[in-house]
């Protein structure tokens, strides 16, 4: 009889503990909510702002704490390294990062991983290291590169086409994968193309593009793979008395207005809001040791003709 009573008390105690632990886990409203460092490549720009908004909404949904970090310049590697170390010192539970360099950020992320910090590499990724225990989210942009090239082929119907692909640096994997995807299609379609990596500040980049276009008069179309490169294109191409086909990236007001007035022919709008949202939801799931389903990159191609379509305007003007 005594054994039975002890067993009964034990069962009730376990039920009691389970009931409490379940409540705590599902709501994630413990006294110490998860703290996540959210490190973006850049502060400015619609792409990064939209990503931040997505992360913020996910923070509300998960009751987690986000430390937002972003560099003023796209390629400020040292600043990103500083942010990672800051996150380590702050003893965060997880780091969501869009690495601005695939080589130099390996060591800091290895260090973070060795400290038991969960890592999600968002959109970009660093070179493989078995010391980094991370999840890569929406970082494979190869298919997006395919789609960019195919859209270009269908939308720019000139017989002879000579494209210039503009990217920021060859150390950003999202651009590299996109270029790889575009190249494959272009090669199969026998479209001439070249890749230009813009470096330095905005003035330098514009100058670099201007010099290139001056010396390569055969170029008739520009594919800018990020909002920074798109901005350069918008500023530089009017200097030439030539009707370039321009495909910009990002739904910045500048890009939209240039699309509206015909300076840009098409815009690739990547749903960076979904990136920010999914990455934080995913990080909380990982910290709760739950599974989460990765979503694919969401993007649309916008032209002047469809920019006010009901479904398109929801994505194109989402930040306005």
């Amino acid at each position: 009889m005594k054994k039975r009573i002890i067993l009964l008390l034990l069962i009730l105690s376990i039920l009691f503990i389970i009931a409490f632990s379940e409540t705590k886990n599902k709501n994630n409203k413990s006294e110490t909510p998860y703290r996540i460092a959210f490190i973006r490549m850049k502060e400015g720009g619609q792409f990064w702002a939209s990503m931040r908004n997505g992360a913020r909404d996910a923070r509300t949904a998960t009751s987690s704490v986000l430390d937002f970090y972003s560099t003023m310049e796209t390629l400020d590697i040292n600043e990103q390294i500083k942010y990672i170390n800051q996150a380590i010192n702050d003893n965060v539970d997880g780091i969501v990062i869009t690495p601005c360099d695939n080589e130099q950020l390996v060591a800091p992320l290895e260090k973070a991983s060795s400290m038991g910090i969960k890592i999600i590499q968002l959109y970009n990724e660093v070179n493989y290291s078995d010391k980094i225990n991370s999840i890569k989210l929406m970082s494979n942009t190869l298919n997006m590169g395919h789609d960019i090239a195919n859209f270009y082929v269908n939308d720019y119907k000139e017989v002879v086409r000579n494209a210039l692909i503009i990217a920021n640096t060859n150390h950003i994997t999202s651009s590299n994968y996109m270029i790889d995807g575009i190249s494959r299609v272009f090669k199969s379609e026998k479209i001439k193309y070249n890749v230009l990596y813009l470096t330095g500040d905005s003035n330098n980049s514009q100058y670099q593009l201007k010099v290139y276009l001056e010396s390569h008069s055969e170029v008739d179309s520009i594919l800018a793979l990020d909002d920074y490169c798109s901005e350069c294109s918008v500023y530089v191409t009017p200097l030439f008395n030539k009707d370039y086909y321009i495909m910009a990236t990002g739904h910045s007001l500048l890009n939209i207005q240039n699309l509206d007035n015909g300076n840009i022919d098409s815009i690739l709008v990547v749903n960076s809001y979904a990136m920010g949202y999914q990455s934080v939801i995913g990080m909380v799931a990982i910290l709760n040791t739950q599974k989460f389903s990765k979503t694919k990159l969401d993007y649309i191609f916008v032209t002047r003709e469809n920019m006010f379509d009901e479904n398109v305007q929801k994505e194109l003007f989402s930040l306005l």
């Binding site: 809001y273 979904a274 949202y277 969401d298 929801k314 994505e315 989402s318």
Partner: peptide
């Protein structure tokens, strides 16, 4: 939740 709906989330 229009933004989430737009993003298919």
């Amino acid at each position: 939740k229009q933004t989430l709906i737009n993003a298919n989330l």
